[in-house]
């Protein structure tokens, strides 16, 4: 099941020539496996959309390559097996939602029944006859997803699919994506919403300033759970913690110390503190959110270091 559905090698896009050019995507090595929901995470302008456009063959890489389903990106044979919604839905404003899908379906000679099924799937069946230009942003977005679903593609590429959706619409969209993955379709999803990615993605790739900083499972990215202890005197507390967990596993955070130990060792650690005569004020198990990890990694100038840290911590987890 580890077949690679999308793979990029040294994928690079530079706009403009020479040193004055802007490097939008910088040697990105991305791998998406069959059947997973892959989250492509990054701040606005990080190069997410540009990378996805190259994966779809809409723009040509300056260097490197992208393969989809084992063939070069952009080949007709590949493109018709991908459903995509890239940078907002692009439809004819004067046509109804349904006629827009009928037009797109004709490019692959798909039966009309698929159009209605796709509308049904994104809850637009009763508005299908209305003109696209009369749709709300959320409905336009859903029509874009409907177009991407037509023809049961092997891979579905969704660029910020929850953009412009209200909270209920976002929840529906996430439910739909999870459902697609359950049905065996591979979903490549870009987002700047961490909660979204944390909730529905199996693996994530984090991109900032055109570089793929890390690619891993969500849980590995967040790292293990840590013990957060407030005890006085603090210097002695640190010394004891280091003795128990090793020097590298202890970190000071304000008044508290963070100790990397498995949760089942919690009583052992607390007992040690008490036995040594320390005053223990607070013991909690702290989990890093993806948000913390993300900001750690994408903070300006430190990302390479952070990525190294992360890679080593990932190795430790394995």
């Amino acid at each position: 099941m580890d077949e690679l559905v999308v793979q990029t090698k040294g994928l690079t896009k530079r706009y403009g020539d020479g040193d004055s050019g802007r490097l939008a995507v910088d040697r990105v090595e991305m791998t998406v496996r069959r059947g997973e929901v892959y989250g492509f995470l990054g701040p606005n302008g990080a190069g997410k959309t540009t990378t996805l456009r190259m994966v779809l063959g809409l723009i040509r890489p300056t260097a490197g390559s992208a393969t989809v389903l084992g063939r070069p990106a952009g080949e007709p044979a590949v493109t018709e097996r991908i459903g995509a919604l890239i940078e907002g839905p692009g439809f004819y404003p004067y046509l109804s939602g349904r006629d827009n899908l009928r037009t797109m379906a004709r490019y692959r000679a798909l039966p009309e029944a698929m159009v209605d099924a796709a509308l049904e799937r994104v809850d637009l069946a009763d508005r299908g006859k209305d003109k696209f230009k009369s749709y709300s942003l959320g409905m336009k977005q859903r029509l874009g997803v409907a177009a991407a679903l037509m023809g049961d593609p092997d891979v579905i590429v969704l660029d910020e699919p929850t953009n412009g959706l209200d909270p209920a619409g976002m929840a529906d969209m996430r439910g739909l994506i999870v459902e697609l993955a359950r049905g065996g379709q591979t979903v490549l999803l870009s987002s700047h919403l961490l909660a979204e990615v944390e909730e529905i993605c199996d693996r994530v790739g984090v991109i900032a300033r055109g570089q793929l900083l890390v690619e891993s499972t969500v849980s590995a990215l967040r790292g293990g759970r840590r013990l957060r202890i407030t005890a006085t005197p603090t210097d002695r507390a640190i010394a004891i913690a280091m003795r128990l967990a090793g020097e590298d596993a202890v970190q000071l955070s304000g008044d508290a110390i963070l100790v990397d130990v498995p949760p089942e060792r919690t009583p052992h650690v607390v007992r040690a503190f008490v036995t040594e005569g320390l005053d223990v004020h607070e013991v909690t198990i702290s989990e890093r959110t993806l948000e913390e990890v993300f900001f750690e990694m994408t903070r300006s100038g430190e990302h390479v270091h952070a990525a190294d840290d992360l890679t080593s911590s990932l190795e430790a987890v394995r």
Binding site: L56, L58, P76, T79, I86, E87, G90, Y92, M104, Y107
Partner: peptide, 14 residues
């Protein structure tokens, strides 16, 4: 401007 060529070119035909 509408982005329809983008949508069309991701349908399949070259």
């Amino acid at each position: 401007g509408w982005g329809t060529w983008k949508t069309v070119l991701t349908q399949g035909p070259s």
